[in-house]
């Protein structure tokens, strides 16, 4: 569907270096990376704003390097949406159909279908200025989708939204993507967005695509410490391995893990979702790590509840809302953190 082969692109002082990847039809790729890593520049190259100096861009088996912007089979939604302020919702969605000179009847049908799909069919006569953030987002999506283009580019479309609307739109993007069978390339700096939405994650840094692969692979086996730090912001520690006792230690705090090299320093990660919290120590469990700690804070989140626990080292556990309610946790309460040794991800420094 989308193939980039050794793409190099220079703009001012910044260069995208030798970017290659392939997306199959229907796949969802999230490009993550710090600000200024070249994500948007890459997206705009695919869109047709920038022409690569070297390399090949193929969409649906056709080379697109020199294809005019308006002829590329891609839809785009930007962070700022860029809805046309002088047009109402209907006119925004119908813009491309108007350019294609479709009849009024056809235009109306297609706009109504797209609006119904995005649940904004009651807003068609509204002016853009009178829409909420979420409604504007839906209009921008409808405008990008109305032509039925197979590739959708999303440039941080969720970063300006409040938490509730963001969660709602994330679910909506998932639905649209599955129902329309879209291939999506989504640029973000929010790793949680990427984890929720994508099949694949690509990590960009300094104009280079440092790693690309299935979500589990990138998350569990980051290609470098830098990537690990970018992907894993919680429960990430540098620890020394004590082979005689099969323990990874940071000061007095130790975790059980087998089969590593003695005295070597490792970057260790424990996924918050793999840490189970219990009010009592578990006797009958295969998990080798059971640590006692005190709840420090509780943060309600789109994807559950994050409980920060001080167990000699600060650890985060991600609970479902239901589990959290059942446990009725409060700051200061003593809990036990339980996780299996194979939940402990390590990579050498």
């Amino acid at each position: 569907m989308l193939t980039l082969g050794h793409i190099t692109l220079k703009k001012g002082d910044f260069t995208l270096k030798d970017i290659s990847f392939h997306l199959k039809a229907g796949e969802y790729l999230n490009l993550v990376g710090p600000t200024g890593s070249g994500k948007t520049m890459l997206l705009e190259m695919i869109m047709g704003i920038n022409t690569p100096a070297h390399g090949t861009l193929m969409i649906n088996g056709k080379e697109m390097n020199r294809e005019a912007l308006q002829k590329r089979p891609v839809g785009i939604v930007y962070q700022n949406l860029y809805l046309f302020p002088h047009k109402n919702v209907f006119e925004n969605i119908a813009f491309s159909l108007h350019i294609m000179r479709l009849s009024k009847k056809e235009r109306e049908k297609k706009v109504e279908d797209a609006a119904r799909f995005l649940k904004i069919d009651s807003l068609l006569e509204r002016s853009i200025q009178h829409l909420s953030g979420g409604e504007k987002q839906r209009v921008a999506l409808a405008r990008a989708l109305v032509l039925g283009r197979p590739l959708l580019l999303l440039d941080e479309p969720l970063s300006a939204l409040d938490a509730i609307t963001k969660w709602e739109i994330m679910q909506e993007i998932q639905r649209i993507r599955h129902e329309k069978g879209l291939t999506v390339l989504h640029v973000t700096h929010d790793i949680e967005e990427a984890l929720f939405l994508s099949d694949k994650i690509g990590v960009m840094m300094n104009g280079e695509l440092r790693q690309i692969g299935p979500v589990e692979e990138v998350v569990n086996r980051p290609a470098s410490v830098e990537i690990g730090k970018l992907i894993r912001k919680e429960n990430l520690f540098r620890m020394i391995y004590k082979k005689s006792r099969s323990l990874l230690c940071k000061g007095d705090f130790c975790l059980y893990k087998e089969g590593l090299e003695a005295k070597k320093e490792y970057l260790v990660h424990i996924p918050p979702e793999d840490i189970i919290l219990s009010l009592k120590p578990m006797q009958e469990t295969s998990a080798r790590n059971c640590l006692k700690g005190d709840v420090r804070s509780v943060i309600h989140h789109n994807m559950g509840v994050k409980v920060h626990v001080d167990a000699g080292i600060s650890l985060v556990s991600l609970l479902t809302q239901r589990s959290f309610r059942q446990m009725a946790l409060e700051p200061g309460q003593t809990v036990y953190l339980i996780f299996k040794s194979n939940a402990v991800g390590v990579y050498g420094l």
């Binding site: 705009e44 308006q70 839809g75 860029y82 813009f95």
Partner: peptide
């Protein structure tokens, strides 16, 4: 007028003049 409005218009099929 943000230049991205033009990019979006062109992405939606408009020529530069349109």
């Amino acid at each position: 007028v943000d230049v991205h409005l033009e990019y979006v218009a062109r992405n939606l099929g408009a020529s530069r003049f349109q």
